[in-house]
Design a protein around this nucleic acid. Structure first.
Lengths: 395, 395
DNA sequence: ACGGAGAGTGAATCATACA
DNA sequence: CTGTATGATTCACTCTCCG
């Protein structure tokens, strides 16, 4: 699927389906968009087309020993064995359950897709170890620090004031996963976003209630947390899947942020509530969502095109920022070094810059400068002029 | 062994040995106190008496699996952990190693003893899962948030700004473990100590250097972290064991805080340096063993947190004080300029403010204003609201 | 002595397009 | 598939050097 960069394009397919690339279209391989699938997540995932989802957020069951509802991968109930709940048995069952849904998720993930899992110390170590065993590639672990955690009533432990998220790529060496680095940095006082995030727990008006005014779902996650996740690791128009949808936070936030969602939920009460919640969401306007072009994604400009366009004349002398090293611009777009080290050598702006500094690599665009009326300027400013000319021409 | 509660009692046995309770005294079952045992930790642990240690702190190899060389943007090389002791053939090999030392540790722990392990996402999930498999009982996971982590140089992930500690009892239902709840609370401005701790990394004068002025040990931990651990989960006179002593932080802090230590270290260089470091430590007078207050955290507010907390909606228009320039608040916490100069450009509140004025820099908090019932207000007032909410939540 | 500039550094699983 | 060329990318803090 082509990456959709503007809102109009993804709006057009808001209620459509997505077919996996490189496979014939048939009903069984279509990805239903913006829908809650009711059923067991492993069973439902197996019906979806392979390699069709951009991001998965999973909030699996945490409690291992406190509840007897744990299901095996085949959906049979794990027998709680009378009074003696065998703890080793329960960890094994939890591992089998986890392995099953992780494998099912891996199948539907695109090769460039990433997976988020949230958990607490009760389960996150097992999930993380299994992720590694199954050859996912952990990119970060993230700590959600709660501003308002529940205190520890008995005073026998530290206040459990955080949960852990794991962010993982589909496999080691996976390339091309989405990470909106520049936007995150810009939003964070122009410093890199760290692995520790601070949010309040979900309470007040955001917390869904049932008819009796009791909380509808025991572990509803705050929308702010999901927004951070979705804004970090997906693009507008992407497909975000949640195999344990619960109260529908993932889907509601995805919809608000112009992403498609696929939710899976077994419990009809939760699924109904999630559907009502999603229906009430108004997607944000495209302008508030579009990603800013990043330096990485800017169109490539060949150095010799500056010469061809007349922005730089052959024979011009370039220098480093302190005017210590010099190089001559040749008509073919190469540089000839005029100073040691590298005197007389010829190469690209990058090779020449590396040679001049005795380094392996160098970004010639920022290393080499040209004399202008306003003083020495990096040739990157000429590239910027070139790019804006190209953008004007494209309109 | 009786718990020793005052300084005098434990001073008396400072250089002595401890015999395991309920067993005949013989040389092979005596615990050598305040000593570094040189050798492999599993072998050395097996020589120690069972059930004789109050607390274990372990900083095992992390199994980092670094792929290649990493350079900073200025092309300098990152001095990474490439030591042989951190290399394992597979996760299986790492698990076998971990299982072996965990079992050896369990044998020497008193039934009331607790174990701390520190790690990163590379290894901590495996350690945690094995702790559960081996029937330890996790009491908390603790996040060490670093004030000054190494940045992510390539901009492909979140800054890895924390490490994780697991605190576990010897077995489920273990009673009588030490947790100095009241002292910790008193030291924490009378609120319960949380599971997220903030400390700088070990650097400056605290960092041990070799003859050439290079760091002696690649992963020396800060003393403040160890002090928090030891003060939380042990009493004066207790025995604290570290099976991977390294540069000796655990032993040095234990000695300073009036605890006995047993250190195990395989590398003679590390062991020698640790011994010299420990010898230079002056134990604190008993009265000074009270907890020092924890540092109050400077509240830092990022612009996107205003959006995440609902104080500012995506799509809102911001203006300068005279309402000449306009910018749109986007969902990810960046601004999109709606007026020239800079029309259409996207950036942080600071970048956008600079662009709008044609300046190099700008304080977006005071430049950008939002329309309120009481007229145009700088967004800094929203930040003030945010800070007061955070302060209230902290009480 | 003091201030400021500049260099150094810390447990890191840190590219991608195109030929 | 591999190999090659391009070129994007850092925060908080400590210490030294120089004026």
């Amino acid at each position: 699927m082509k990456v959709v960069r503007n809102g109009e394009a993804h709006r057009a397919s808001r209620t459509g389906v997505i077919r996996p690339s490189g496979r014939p279209s048939d009903l069984s391989s279509e990805l239903p968009l913006d829908t809650i699938l009711r059923g067991d997540c492993v069973a439902e995932l197996s019906k979806l087309p392979a390699r069709s989802v951009d991001m998965v957020f999973a909030d699996p069951p945490y409690n291992l020993q406190l509840q007897g509802e744990l299901k095996r991968p085949d959906d049979s109930r794990v027998d709680a064995v009378d009074d003696a709940w065998d703890k080793f048995e329960s960890f094994q069952a939890y591992d089998a359950f986890t392995r099953a849904w992780l494998l099912a998720v891996r199948r539907v993930l695109k090769p460039t897709g990433t997976l988020w899992v949230i958990g607490s110390y009760h389960n996150i170590f097992r999930v993380g170890a299994l992720l590694q065993d199954l050859d996912f590639w952990i990119l970060n672990d993230i700590v959600w620090r709660k501003t308002n955690p529940m205190p520890n009533f008995r005073g026998r432990r530290f206040t459990n004031a955080h949960e852990t998220l794991i962010w993982a790529a589909r496999e080691p060496g996976a390339k091309g996963y989405t990470f909106n680095y520049e936007a995150l940095k810009a939003a964070n006082e122009d410093v890199q976003m760290r692995s520790d995030w601070l949010f309040p727990i979900c309470s007040g008006g955001e917390r869904l209630k049932d008819e009796d005014g009791r909380k509808l779902h025991p572990t509803q996650k705050p929308e702010a947390l999901l927004a951070r996740v979705i804004l970090s690791a997906s693009k507008p128009g992407d497909v975000v899947l949640d195999p344990f949808l619960g109260s529908g936070t993932t889907a509601a936030v995805a919809r608000r942020l112009g992403r498609h969602f696929v939710g899976i939920e077994r419990d009809p009460t939760y699924a109904d509530a999630a559907q009502a919640r999603i229906d009430a969401v108004e997607p944000l306007p495209d302008l508030a969502l579009a990603l800013a072009p990043t330096a990485r994604e800017a169109p490539r400009v060949a150095f010799n095109s500056l010469i061809e366009r007349g922005l730089l004349a052959p024979g011009t002398l370039l220098t480093d920022a302190k005017a210590r090293t010099r190089a001559l611009v040749r008509a073919d777009g190469t540089l000839s070094l005029e100073t040691a080290p590298g005197l007389g050598q010829i190469g690209s702006i990058h090779r020449a810059g590396a040679l001049a500094q005795g380094l392996d690599a160098c970004n010639g665009w920022t290393y080499w400068h040209v004399e202008t009326r306003e003083g020495l300027k990096p040739i990157d400013t000429l590239r910027a002029v070139m790019r804006s000319e190209m953008a004007m021409a494209a309109e």
